[in-house]
């Protein structure tokens, strides 16, 4: 029997992933790179302007460009929240949606609201610990949206694939380890970006995480070489991880390493450092998103009862 496919829910989840990564986290990362997180120190309003006001020119004139970046981040985050709100409502009003999926969508709504309040607390209390938690919380929202996108996808209910239990168990284990390490590394990176944690912490975790993910990719490519979807996911992860390692090396060299003094002027230095740091952050989120997708496949769509 063909399983139901909830096209609206899937599209909302995919749009949610794109909006959250490209806009909300992209602009949020820019805020930290430019260090203008407190350019707009009130919440939810600013001198009578609401969250939904389109008054960028006036805002820039009165409070500077930094406040426009912060305002745009809040608007993008509201869009993420709105998408998840619609997704949660749609999951309850659409007939035939499994209870687990409804609960997942509702849970995501709760998490995204908590994430918004965490952002508000970070501003109102002006705390770096709040900023670090807010940064890590954003990645958790991405993880939930990827899970929603996977479980609502048309091919989610395709027949299970059977592989040797020993191999499947190993990949399951290391994909979970990779996800845990990614979150810990995001915490270390956010601490570093907010000048709280030492660089060594992020470096050691980055090397460890990269090692685990490379091992995971190798195992996935070896075990699932005949399985196109898994092989494609593993190769994507390899490409993104390679880019991420290159960006990480560049971030070290140009932000705190030997190339810090290689910029012709202050404006170029600031722009280049912001782009590298924000790019490194975004690539890290992509690594998380693809690793989550790979874990979902191996956890729920691959069976360990086969003989290879």
């Amino acid at each position: 029997m063909e399983q139901p496919y909830f096209r609206l829910l899937h599209r909302l989840a995919v749009i949610g992933v794109v909006v959250t990564i490209a806009l909300t986290i992209g602009i949020g990362g820019t805020i930290t790179s430019a260090e203008v997180g407190m350019a707009y120190p009130t919440w939810p309003d600013i001198n009578g302007g609401s969250l939904f006001s389109i008054f960028y020119g006036k805002l820039a004139e009165t409070f500077g460009i930094g406040s426009v970046v912060e305002h745009t981040h809040r608007q993008a985050a509201s869009l993420t929240g709105l998408i998840i709100l619609v997704l949660a409502i749609a999951s309850w009003v659409t007939r035939g949606v499994p209870k687990n999926l409804r609960l997942l969508a509702t849970g995501s709504l709760v998490i995204v609201i908590a994430q918004g309040l965490l952002g508000a607390t970070r501003v109102l209390e002006n705390t770096y610990s709040g900023a670090i938690l807010h940064a890590v919380g954003a990645q958790f929202v991405v993880l939930l949206l990827v899970v929603l996108a996977k479980t609502t996808a048309r091919d989610w209910h395709r027949p299970m694939q059977h592989f040797k239990a020993e191999h499947v168990d190993r990949i399951r284990l290391w994909s979970v380890v990779a996800l845990v390490l990614l979150f810990l590394n995001l915490f270390a990176a956010a601490s570093l970006r907010h000048k709280q944690g030492a660089f060594e912490g992020h470096l050691i975790l980055a090397i460890t995480t990269a090692g685990v993910i490379l091992y995971l990719i190798r195992q996935a490519l070896t075990t699932f070489r005949e399985q196109k979807k898994m092989a494609r996911l593993a190769r994507s992860l390899a490409h993104i991880l390679g880019t991420q390692l290159a960006l990480g090396a560049a971030a070290w060299a140009f932000l705190i390493g030997p190339l810090i003094g290689s910029f012709p002027d202050e404006d170029t230095r600031f722009l280049a450092q912001s782009l590298i740091a924000t790019g490194h952050l975004l690539c890290g989120v992509l690594v998380l998103a693809v690793t989550t997708a790979l874990w979902m496949e191996v956890r729920f769509r691959i069976d360990g009862g086969g003989t290879e």
Partner: peptide, 21 residues
């Protein structure tokens, strides 16, 4: 090995401070 390196990294993150530029 992963557990040990993670603990060391977290130690640096939680107890160290930013040696900035």
């Amino acid at each position: 090995v992963v557990a040990v390196s993670t603990l060391v990294a977290l130690y640096f993150t939680l107890t160290g401070s930013f040696a900035g530029a």
